[in-house]
Nucleic acid binder design. Structure first.
Length: 336
DNA sequence: AAGGTACACAACCGCTCTTGA
DNA sequence: TTCAAGAGCGGTTGTGTACCT
């Protein structure tokens, strides 16, 4: 598959288009259609490469292009679709009549990405930013300082902090490990109903090192359901998956942007054991497939006005806002 | 008013996929 | 089946403009 030597011919003009060039291109295409883009510039009398002409037409000169600011409706559609499709700009553009992939991409990079970051949401995963974990120890210490000073000696405090730090490091390692294996694997792990004896190769490749980590992690959390048997070393069995899904996803009860289930914006005291008792969310492996049905679902969920109960987060309705520090601090995972 | 900086967006680059000979 | 051209796509860059000091 050789790459077409498009614009490297010398003498062809690059850079911004002039109005004269635009007029020539529009006039030609209106009269003859674009036909072969490579042949077009010569036939139209333009000193541009065909690719440049095609981009200029599709991104700017096409008569059905809608210009101007994005409406809030369009904005939330982009956010919802991006949560499903990722950076599939053309797929997203196909659901926004009159908008080009380039325009949406630019709008995403200059506005929406920053907006999400300022909201504490990772623009790529549409989940709360994981780098928040880096400041977690400080948050935990601040929130629990008084209680600690009342009930524990400094030595005890230091020892617990050390254990918690170790636990967090292991947890982050595991998160990365599972992320590396991809969304399908994550879905399998998070969805006990998929547990069976024929695991995908990637999952079977999780080495016993990871399971050791999981096992040691459980020992740190004496308040949770550590009565469950520790997983065997070696590759994951169906039992292991079930075990993991029920015991070792301390964040599994976090609101998930692609979660079918409900979530609560502020955990109550009754939720304090949710890590142990709450059912594991049934995640859907959307992946990066560009599946138009999913995209349609994203649009449909938006138009139905069902912003909190559908499979995707609503970015424009404050009722769904989440105070993440509250979640951390009320979570038994982070109790000393 | 001038220079510097940040931002927005059009355009380009280079890779991949599709298609047809 | 192979190969090359055409086309599509996502990431990046360059340039104009607005804003700030």
């Amino acid at each position: 598959m050789g790459r077409s030597p498009c614009c490297d011919e010398s003498g062809l003009k690059k850079g911004p288009w002039t109005t004269e060039e635009d007029e020539i291109l529009v006039r030609y295409i209106k009269k003859h259609g674009h036909g072969s883009w490579r042949a077009l510039p010569k036939l139209a009398g333009l000193n541009r490469c065909g690719k440049s002409c095609r981009l200029r037409w599709t991104n700017y000169l096409r008569p059905d292009i809608k210009r101007g600011k994005f409406s809030t409706e369009e904005e939330s559609t982009i956010l919802n679709l991006h949560a499903v499709l990722g950076n599939k700009w053309s797929a997203i553009a196909s659901h926004l009549p009159g908008r080009t992939d380039n325009e949406i991409k630019n709008y995403w990079n200059t506005h929406l990405k920053k907006k999400l970051i300022s909201m504490g949401v990772d623009p790529m995963t549409h989940r709360p930013r994981t780098d928040i974990f880096s400041s977690l120890p400080q948050l935990m210490v601040l929130a629990r300082l008084k209680e600690l000073m009342d009930h524990h000696s400094l030595e005890e405090h230091a020892m617990r902090l050390q254990l918690q730090a170790e636990a967090m490091a292991k947890l982050q390692y595991l998160q990365r490990l599972f992320e590396t294996l991809g969304p399908t694997t994550s879905s399998l792990i998070m969805d006990p109903s998929t547990s069976n004896n024929s695991l995908p190769n990637g999952l079977a490749d999780i080495d016993h090192q990871a399971l050791k980590l999981l096992s040691s992690f459980s020992q740190l959390d004496q308040t949770s359901s550590c009565n469950a048997p520790a997983p065997n070393s070696g590759s994951l069995s169906a039992t292991d998956i079930d075990y993991l899904s029920n015991n070792y996803f301390p964040f599994s009860h976090f609101p998930d942007l692609q979660n079918d289930g409900d979530f609560q914006t502020s955990p109550t005291e009754d939720d304090s054991n949710s890590m142990v008792q709450a059912p594991v969310p049934q995640l859907t492996a959307f992946g990066q497939t560009g599946d138009s049905q999913l995209a349609n679902a994203a649009v449909a969920s938006k138009t139905n006005g069902d912003s909190c109960n559908n499979s995707l987060i609503s970015y424009d309705e404050p009722s769904c806002s989440i105070s993440w520090p509250d979640i951390f601090l009320n979570d038994p995972m982070f109790q000393f």
